[in-house]
Nucleic acid binder design. Structure first.
Ligand SMILES: NC(=O)c1ccc[n+]([C@@H]2O[C@H](COP(=O)([O-])OP(=O)(O)OC[C@H]3O[C@@H](n4cnc5c(N)ncnc54)[C@H](O)[C@@H]3O)[C@@H](O)[C@H]2O)c1
Ligand SMILES: NC(=O)c1ccc[n+]([C@@H]2O[C@H](COP(=O)([O-])OP(=O)(O)OC[C@H]3O[C@@H](n4cnc5c(N)ncnc54)[C@H](O)[C@@H]3O)[C@@H](O)[C@H]2O)c1
Lengths: 204, 204
DNA sequence: ATTCGCTTGTGAAACGAATCACGATGCCCA
DNA sequence: TGGGCATCGTGATTCGTTTCACAAGCGAAT
């Protein structure tokens, strides 16, 4: 499945879920409009799912949701840990939207002993020493990284050694990871800078 | 300038800054390695800046940083407001990394009167009624949107009416905005779902 | 049954971006 | 001063993605 397609599937899922239960069927045209893409593109994307729409009618909404979830590997819930429980890490730990999208936060970790008393969203913040064992024991395969940039690579190495296979990194630092590890970067400053470019260009 | 290039410029800037002051000159090869892209790609990207590297030597690091900043419109600081001061909004308001990247948070806004007493990072949380006037008065052109998804479109409309030109939206909801408004979406759930896809695929 | 209108699925074409490959060029040192 | 080396700048090529265009298929209406 093309990379570009994979990155659009969550968008389709989101659009379909936002439609509410009124419609039992959607056309590629309709989905394309709400998702902001070309309808042929939608059809080609969905064709990779082995999905069968009905000509003249469209796609069954619920069935399509189900197929998207299956394709994305969201049938089973993934267990996730968060490392670095500062401003951002705490906000993420408190976020209620994980569950709905197929993820389950099972542990919070921080290097700072001062954070350890704290409890965030029902989880005690644990020490980095607990990390490895917890990951192995609970078969955790995803981690969210919200430490300062300087600590990110070290923590990533630790996570990988412990058996983590996917990392979502919020620290503004490019992680070096082995090929078989999935890693995505979310960088606020980058996003703002891209906006800055277009805005500056627009004004000139 | 190609869209793909624009999205890489902040990365180059970040890499160059992370290099420290040891090196006064960098080759495209070196920059390519730290940024994780092809060196020819780096050269082509930088050629759009009208940048002049020196054959046989490389690019002057500081000069290149400067050119990147200029191209991205980061010479002057942009004023930014944050709307929706809940978990995530507060974390962003507390974030110290804005300044370094060329942005300046000038106001926090929330619809909930209960939030108004609070002070976050030296800013009082203000009412939505103040938003429009503040934006006009201080010539604010960028906004960060961290309200619940249901409120996002309404707030976006308000912001645009008040004169905002770029929006960074963290709510999981696709905003409908006029063509001339720049809008970027950061969606945590989407990112995790993409990771989920690759991990599930890898295991199968 | 047959026709009509709509929507899918997909080959072909167009497009944009990444990569290759190499000539051009500046620096350093003998 | 000239030769060698490193690196840039960029045309040509390849690759991946998007869009177009239309035949095929289904359902509904007559
Ligand atoms: N806060 C934001 O809005 C924001 C926005 C964009 C990016 N970021 C990035 O996200 C990261 C976190 O930001 P923040 O504002 O939450 O910072 P923070 O300082 O509030 O939190 C960082 C946490 O990481 C912990 N930590 C430090 N070293 C560690 C280690 N080696 N192992 C485990 N934990 C460690 C600290 O104890 C602290 O609790 C930073 O890299 C920042 O650049 C933050
Ligand atoms: N917290 C996270 O980690 C996280 C992660 C990903 C995405 N998000 C998204 O970011 C958004 C904010 O998340 P949160 O956890 O901070 O939620 P939150 O409920 O803590 O904060 C939302 C804030 O928005 C304010 N608000 C509501 N309606 C408003 C309106 N019409 N105008 C102005 N302000 C309004 C509320 O008073 C509240 O303070 C949500 O859309 C959420 O889905 C959050």
């Amino acid at each position: 499945m093309p990379k570009a397609t994979v990155e659009r599937l969550p968008l389709y899922l989101q659009c379909l879920q936002a439609m509410g239960d009124v419609e039992s069927t959607v056309s590629s045209e309709e989905l394309a409009n709400t998702a902001g893409v070309n309808s042929a593109n939608v059809r080609k994307d969905l064709s990779y799912l082995g999905s069968h729409g009905v000509r003249g009618v469209g796609y069954n909404r619920l069935e399509l949701c189900d197929q998207l979830r299956r394709a994305l590997g969201l049938i089973e819930k993934w267990s996730v840990v968060i490392v670095g429980i500062g401003n951002l890490g705490s906000a993420l730990a408190n976020y209620r939207g994980f569950d709905a999208s197929g993820f389950n936060v099972v542990g919070l970790y921080d290097a700072d002993p001062a954070k350890r008393g704290h409890q965030v969203d029902g989880h005690y913040v644990k020490s980095m020493d607990d990390l490895k064992l917890d990951i192995k024991e609970h078969d955790v395969s995803m981690a969210i990284l919200t430490t300062p940039a300087a600590a990110a690579q070290g923590v990533a190495d630790l996570l990988i050694e412990a058996g983590i296979q996917s990392i979502l990194n919020f620290a503004p630092s490019l992680l070096k990871v082995p090929n078989e590890i999935n890693c995505r970067q979310v960088d606020l400053a980058t996003e703002l800078q891209i906006l800055s470019y277009y805005q500056a260009a627009h004004q000139a």
